[in-house]
Nucleic acid binder design. Structure first.
Length: 128
DNA sequence: ATTCTAACA
DNA sequence: TGTTAGCA
């Protein structure tokens, strides 16, 4: 279960999440306002997303492509537990290089579990 | 350089 | 949703 710790560990900066999800900062912040995601905040008020957050964001993105509105998305995601992210100190966001390494291991474990095909589908493009 | 909030020619 | 202003 050590993976849950990692997945709830806040380490993604806004910029990284934008690249990872293809969503705009505006959208990401808007979804947070609607409590679709609950990223942590650094001492400087910067958002720090966990892998769980990115996962939900990708879910939201796919639902958006399917033409589901915010209310609908809320319904779908409300059925999913909202594990709170772990508190984060003042640490700077993980470097992109280390981040990619982490994502790679995530993709491997995800495949190992046959889980979240979404993650593989959406993020695999970063490893081609 | 990056992200944040608030607001709208 | 985009975009921009003014901060931190």
């Amino acid at each position: 279960m050590d993976n849950n710790v990692r997945r709830s560990m806040p380490l993604f900066s806004m910029g990284i999440v934008q690249k990872l999800t293809g969503l705009t900062a505006r959208q990401i912040r808007y979804y947070e306002e609607n409590e679709l995601i609950h990223p942590e905040r650094t001492a400087g008020n910067r958002r720090v997303f966990s892998f769980n957050d990115v996962d939900r964001l990708l879910d939201i993105k796919s639902l958006l492509d399917e033409g589901v509105n915010l209310a609908g998305i809320r319904r779908v995601l409300s059925e999913k537990p909202v594990e709170a992210n772990r508190p984060v100190e003042d640490k700077k966001a993980m470097s992109e290089a280390d981040l990619m390494k982490f994502l790679k291991t995530e993709l491997v474990s995800a495949g190992k579990f046959g889980k979240s095909s979404l993650i593989q589908g959406e993020l695999s493009r970063f490893f081609k």
